[in-house]
Simulated scan of single mutants.
Amino acid sequence: MKTLVIYAHPNHESLSYAFLERVLKGLRDRPSGEEVQVLDLYAEGFDPVLVFNKEKRRRDMHSDPELARHREQLLWADRIVLVYPIWWGRPPAILLGYIDRMFASGFAYRDNGKLLPEGLLKGKSVVCVSTMKGFARYPLLWLHDAHRVLMKKALFQYVGIRKVKFFEFGSMESPQGKHEAKLRKVYRYFRTVGV
């Protein structure tokens, strides 16, 4: 199994980073071989801003040479793991900008004249590991599950990825947030999934 882990938090001393470390430890401790690549969007200085002008046309996004390495990573991966906080009910702008730039027509999907396009990233799976200040059911009860709808239906199903799992951890700024138990849960999942 080949796993691409995408990390979207600016602080390497954050709880999100602790989750990243547990994901990676779980993958390393698996009994079967696991190939892993990590993309730390902030550390890399990934530019999330879309630019369209005479030189950069929207229809050419799928072949932008600046993003060639990132396209290769996505094509290489069997599984994509996203580790990020939920801010204002959605992922950080840098991750949304990555999605805007990477999941382009001609690379992630192809228009086919039907209601939904042909997803070109079929056969992959996604795991979203996210943290938030609010209580765990906040996105469902207050925001009509907007985060999951955005990630699963508006993005991943659109590009052909059907298998999407979520770990949404709430109350993460509270001393009663059960951080260690949640970190262990993520470690166990990545240590054993697919075994």
Rank of each mutant, 00 (worst) to 15 (best):
V193R: 03
L120C: 06
S14V: 13
H70T: 01
F156N: 12
S174I: 03
S63N: 02
K124V: 02
K165H: 13
R69C: 00
R90K: 04
F156Y: 15
E66Q: 12
R30Q: 15
T192E: 14
P91A: 11
Q73C: 08
A104H: 05
Y84I: 01
L140Y: 07
M1L: 11
P175L: 01
V129P: 04
F19A: 09
M102A: 03
L20R: 09
S16Q: 14
F46N: 09
E55P: 00
G33R: 11
P91W: 02
L39T: 13
L115M: 13
L67E: 01
R101G: 05
A146W: 11
I86K: 01
M1E: 07
D78H: 12
H179F: 07
K25W: 02
H9T: 11
S171K: 11
I80R: 05
R22K: 15
E118I: 03
G194L: 07
Q176D: 15
G45S: 06
S16T: 15
L41A: 10
M102V: 02
H144R: 12
K2M: 04
D47E: 14
Q37L: 07
H9D: 12
S32W: 00
L121Y: 04
S63T: 07
D47K: 08
N53F: 02
D64A: 09
R110K: 14
Q157N: 15
H147T: 02
R28S: 15
W76V: 06
L140D: 15
S16D: 15
R184L: 13
H70F: 15
M102E: 02
R79S: 12
M61T: 02
T192A: 07
T3Y: 07
F166V: 07
G97Q: 09
M151P: 04
L15R: 14
F19G: 10
Y109G: 02
M1H: 07
S125R: 13
P139D: 10
F156K: 01
E55R: 10
G106L: 07
W76F: 06
G89Y: 01
L96T: 12
G97M: 07
R184Y: 02
G113R: 04
L140T: 12
M151K: 00
I161E: 03
L183G: 05
E180M: 11
G45I: 10
L24Q: 15
V5P: 12
A108V: 03
V129Y: 03
L4Y: 10
W142P: 00
M61H: 05
G26E: 11
K152L: 04
R30N: 13
R137F: 11
V38P: 04
V23I: 12
Y138E: 13
Y7W: 07
S125K: 13
V127E: 03
L143Y: 13
P85Y: 06
L115N: 09
F166Y: 13
R162Q: 14
Q176I: 06
G160W: 08
R137G: 01
L74Q: 05
L96G: 06
